[in-house]
């Protein structure tokens, strides 16, 4: 096992898949000469060349539409959106085309493509550049939505996404790139659509993913000092959503807190809570709690921004609420 950052893990996955399969190529804003706005593709342009590491105009519909067309011809494009907020400029191509073409033409169209997008708040980028709209994309059948919370998962899931024959939106959290974690040596793939228990416990189930896994883990550390053992289930994929480990854990603890960075209304927590009530109602010992972003456009001011984002104390408080 090597201890590397999330950025290195994602970069390794891309590099190894490009070495393995010549049909894989990258396109996006500043992925080439610049080396990626988050430095994920640093060194790629010099090694793989301009045909396989393609700098695009700042034109998101052309990036995603172009990736769709190229995927239809049998290549495996990895399109990078500098931030997920820019995905709205390509919304039609993501949800109206990529998510629907295979179904709408009776299975004829196959789109082996990945959209990498950087999301999340906490860096004082203001309301338009700080969103966590993961649930919006997870709403659409036909799209797969993945959002890893650890370097190990990021590498294995991105490899699976690139090898997948379906369009996958791969959401990377901007403040996780520097986070380090153990990553297995060599080639490994983690199947899409599988939740995972990241921390065992018996008193309460915390269901979360992406950046909020980090905060939930810190909250669980605090709770452990008070003798409360929280089990953390990491969704990893939002669509398909794997409720298996969630329900298994909940049937053991009978108490749940769902933690997400996006807004509470119509969010991931709403969906997971509803499914627990639908599928494990007899096991409910306390109303399920949701921790999420305050319902405001994220402000620039650091203090206000942090007030709007979920904090470790919010998670601790919510856990005590359900106990």
């Amino acid at each position: 096992m090597a201890r590397i950052t999330m950025r290195e893990a994602i970069s390794q996955a891309l590099w190894e898949e490009m070495e393995r399969d010549p049909s894989v190529f990258i396109l996006g804003e500043e992925v080439g000469v610049w080396g990626g706005t988050y430095a994920v593709t640093k060194g790629f342009y010099d090694h793989f060349g301009p045909e396989r590491v393609r700098d695009t105009p700042i034109a998101e519909a052309a990036i995603i539409g172009g990736a769709i067309g190229a995927a239809l011809t049998g290549t495996r494009p990895v399109a990078e959106l500098m931030t997920i907020n820019f995905a709205f400029s390509a919304m039609d191509h993501i949800v109206n085309e990529a998510a629907k073409l295979h179904y709408m033409f009776g299975g004829q169209f196959v789109l082996p493509m990945v959209i990498r997008a950087v999301g999340g708040g906490g860096r004082q980028l203001g309301a338009t550049h700080s969103q966590t709209p993961d649930a919006v994309f997870a709403h659409f059948p036909g799209l797969k939505v993945v959002a890893p919370g650890t370097p190990e998962d990021a590498k294995g899931l991105l490899k699976a996404a690139i090898r997948s024959n379906d369009p996958v939106l791969f959401i990377e959290h901007a403040t996780l790139y520097q986070v380090r974690g153990e990553v297995p040596e060599g080639d490994y793939v983690i199947p899409l659509g599988k939740s995972k228990v990241q921390r065992p416990g018996k008193d309460v189930t915390i269901i979360t993913y992406s950046k909020m896994l980090e905060l939930s883990t810190k909250a669980a550390d605090q709770l452990a000092k008070e003798g409360i053992e929280a089990e953390i289930v990491d969704l990893r994929s939002l669509r398909p959503l794997d409720m298996g480990p969630v329900l298994e854990s909940f049937k053991k603890t009978n108490r749940a807190v769902i933690v997400e960075e996006g807004w509470r209304s119509y969010g991931v927590g709403s969906e997971v809570a509803a499914r627990i009530y639908e599928e494990a109602f007899d096991y409910v010992d306390a109303p399920i709690q949701r921790v999420a972003q305050k319902e405001v456009p994220l402000p620039y001011n650091r203090t206000l921004e942090q007030m709007a984002l979920p904090q470790i104390e919010d998670i601790v408080k919510a856990v005590k609420e359900v106990l």
């Binding site: 049909s23 190529f25 045909e51 519909a61 052309a62 995603i64 539409g65 172009g66 990736a67 769709i68 067309g69 190229a70 995927a71 239809l72 011809t73 049998g74 290549t75 494009p77 191509h93 085309e97």
Partner: peptide
């Protein structure tokens, strides 16, 4: 844009 992508796929291959 999808047409541009189809052409890109042919060019790439």
């Amino acid at each position: 844009p999808i047409a541009a992508g189809l052409a890109l796929g042919d060019q790439y291959q």
